[in-house]
Design a binder for these strands. Structure first.
Lengths: 64, 64
DNA sequence: ACAAAATGTCAAGTATATTTTACTAATTAT
DNA sequence: ATAATTAGTAAAATATACTTGACATTTTGT
């Protein structure tokens, strides 16, 4: 399932996928795949993404 | 770094590592390793653990 | 319309999360 | 004191997260 909250938070910081990827130390394709939602990142990467975007895990990765 | 919040939440539900492992569909060693803190689970596993323990990601896996 | 940047996607390779089996140490109950 | 359950740890194998490189499509700016 697509992660639109992540996509929106990134847009809110005016960052490209490449910029976010550089900020957290992964490839652009990894960010793209996470937003596309067809896989399952590690928690450390999720936390790094949250810190780069000033959000928490619950805000970006929790689903009711 | 050890995940004591997870250990405490599990104790609060009176579950063994084995019971939690069964509840979320991984091996007991995986739960043990996460509590021990020397590795990096996937977010889906973290979410499954949170649901089994009635906690959120921020409560069990976020660190300031 | 055109160029440049950003995004979507794929295949092959590498790094690492997770499993299985097994053994030991510590707790808990009888 | 002893048996049974729980917890800690390790090595080898398997599954999968992530990388690299490449190309196509879409969006944005001029």
């Amino acid at each position: 399932m697509k992660n639109l909250k992540l996509k929106a938070a990134r847009a809110g910081k005016d960052m490209s996928q490449q910029q976010l990827a550089d900020a957290v130390g992964v490839s652009r394709q990894t960010i793209n795949a996470i937003e596309k939602g067809d896989y399952n990142p590690t928690i450390r990467l999720c936390i790094a993404i949250c810190r780069a975007l000033d959000r928490t895990l619950d805000e970006l990765f929790w689903e009711e």
